[in-house]
């Protein structure tokens, strides 16, 4: 128990936040108007908000279901899977940014300002979750080492 208390606490909080993000993506999509607050922007179109939100929601559920008996390998793998699902959504959000940033409106390529502007906030929930989901790698390494 003791050794993984920190991990449980961490993934517990991350799991709750992720579930909340997922639910709000679905709610925003159902509502129809996009939502923006600080650096957060929740998408509202069917594919990204609906389908993507569903995946974020499940990523959160994966985290939460891994908490009980966290150190056991099958339980821990659920936390890994939660992170992988966030990586899928966030990775493709970033990929979409990259592909949008390069071509220009007039002329072949975007201006430098336009290019950089694409990467400015606000970000989708998945991208905001991304750095926090990477913590799982630390625990994978730790497990490999032992």
């Amino acid at each position: 128990m003791g050794e993984y208390t920190m991990a449980k606490l961490y993934f517990g909080i991350l799991g709750i936040v992720t579930v909340l993000f997922g639910v709000s993506e679905l709610a925003v999509t159902a509502g129809g108007t996009s939502f923006s607050w600080g650096i957060l922007e929740i998408p509202n179109e069917m594919f990204r908000g609906g389908w993507g939100g569903f995946i974020v929601l499940f990523a959160g559920l994966f985290y939460l279901s891994s908490l009980k008996n966290f150190s056991e390998i099958h339980q821990f793998s659920k936390a890994i899977m939660g992170s992988i699902m966030i990586w899928v959504v966030a990775g493709l959000d970033i990929f979409a940014m990259i592909t949008e940033s390069i071509p220009g409106e007039e002329g072949w390529f975007n201006s430098l300002g336009g290019f950089l502007g694409t990467y400015a906030p606000p970000y989708t929930p998945a991208i905001i979750l991304l750095p926090f989901s990477l913590v799982v790698i630390y625990y994978i390494c730790k497990r490999k080492a032992s």
Partner: peptide, 19 residues
Amino acid sequence: TGIPIAIAVLYGLWSFFGS
């Protein structure tokens, strides 16, 4: 667990395809 994962994979395929 597999069905949500499959849905995520499909999402990935589609999203990459579109972008």
